[in-house]
Each structure stands twice: as C-alpha cells, then as structure tokens.
Design a protein around this nucleic acid. Structure first.
Lengths: 122, 122
DNA sequence: GAAACATATTCCTTTAGAGGAATATGTAGT
DNA sequence: ACTACATATTCCTCTAAAGGAATATGTTTC
C-alpha cells in the first residue's frame, strides 16, 4: 500500500476517531454513531472512504455492517496505526471515544427495547 | 500540537518528500528544487504550508533560506516523523531523493561557476 | 544603484473532498 | 407482502488547497 494513501485517510478528524476506535476491535455503524454522535451519513461515508483505500474491511452480520481493521496490514499501515494509537492518547476527543466504547453494552437492540432483547452484532 | 494538523501536512506527496529530506538535516530551497526537480513556486508554497503549521523552521543565510525540522518537536511530531522515515525507505521516490541529496556538493554556486567559487549555504 | 540571484507572494483556475437532505438498498420480523 | 430497521448512495453546495504564470521582495555583487 502506498504511504500517501494512508496519510490521506488520516487527515480528517472523523476518520481518525473511527480508526482509533477500530484499534480496540471490530465495531458496527450504529455504535460508531452512538460514540461519535455524528450523523449517520457522515460516518457511513467516511467508512466507505476508508474501505475503498483498504484501511478497513466490512462484513455483514444480519442487519448490521461490522467494520474492522485488516487482518494483515502492510508494514506502513501497521506502523501508522500504532503511531496513531500512541498519539491519540494525548487528545481528549480520542480518550472520550474509547471511554464511551467501554460503557457500551455492545448489543444492537432496537431503540426502546430492553437490552437483553437486543442481538449482539459486534 | 494537534495531531490532525500533522496529518494534514503529511497528505501531500511533495511535502512528504520535503520532510523526508529534512530528516537528514537542514536544506535550502535551491537544493530542494534540484533534488525534487519540481518548479520553485511549488516547493516554496509547500514549505510555507509546513512552516505555518510549525512542522519546519526557516533561517535566512545570505540569499538563501535554510529550512530545518524544529529543535524540540512535540511527542506527536517526533513519533510521526520517525514513522515517516521508517516507511519512506520502502518507496523508490524517497530513496532516490536521499540518494540525490548524498551526491549534492551542498554549495550554492551560481550556475556555470566552478564548485569552489560557490558559497556554502547549508 | 543596477543587475543577477534566491525565494516568496499574488492572482488565477481547477479539483478533491466535506457536509447534509433525500432517497435507495438490503435485512429481519410479523 | 408490509413494516421497521441499519446502512449505503445520490444529489447538491461549499471550501481548502493544488498547480502555475507573473510579479514582488530581499540579498549580494559589481
């Protein structure tokens, strides 16, 4: 993978937040929405951008699309993701996102349903 | 320094080449031109871009402007520059630039003058 | 001080991409 | 089949920034 392509993916705040979260493990779009508190179209488009450039993979699980980092990233990608994770610690936005991720119950229940009726999606 | 600002600087090929060269030491614009073989305005503008965002410093030396990396870069910048230097090794453009840098006699002589009449600028 | 040189800046055109509203697609449940 | 849900895609508008020609600025040399 070309180095420039990687940096192009990293030069937007929303994408940095998405990647920072994905470093913790696979996640579906509805959870990204919940954590970032950004409109669905915005999240969906940035994920598409990352997908087209090979920074993330998707897998459908029922109604949900679960995104994750590639299994065997190139040397460049691995290095940069590690660097990002290291640096992101220093900024509040990223720390808060990870905190919210921790509090999430990780089920994709319909709104209003009790949490044990929801199916796990990721 | 904000992480996003760093990545914004890294998402252009010309700027990556400039930074990769600066990792080897200070350099003046005329040498960048010689190595990158890109028009003066292009190089000058990208250096201005980097300067405005604090990724490089400038110092005038006679007619020449000598650019260099900041003396004490932030943690984020240091990490990313190290990462860049590591990754750049894998791509031909960057290796070639460094090669050309090595062959340079590092004097800023007027065209046509013998090399020992030229003054050192960086 | 005029000319040559090194570099920066201004002005322009063009393009990538960000953001959002509306709509389309695919899936599950009834 | 109809509905609700999760996500993607298609429009659109707007802005940052890339690239280059021409010009301006600052420096040295004669």
């Amino acid at each position: 993978m070309e180095l420039l392509r990687i940096y192009e993916c990293l030069c937007d705040r929303t994408r940095l937040r998405l990647l920072n979260l994905l470093a913790q493990g696979p996640l579906c779009v509805c959870h990204f929405q919940e954590i970032l508190r950004e409109p669905q179209v915005k999240i969906s488009k940035h994920l598409a951008y990352l997908r087209q450039r090979g920074l993330v993979k998707v897998e459908r699980r029922g109604k949900w699309m679960v995104y994750e980092l590639p299994g065997k990233p190139s040397r460049e990608l691995k290095a940069n993701l590690a660097c990002l994770q290291d640096c992101a610690q220093e900024e509040a936005v990223f720390r808060r996102d990870v905190e919210r991720l921790g509090k999430l119950d990780r089920s994709c229940a319909p709104v209003g349903a009790t949490s044990d009726t929801g199916q796990r999606c990721c």
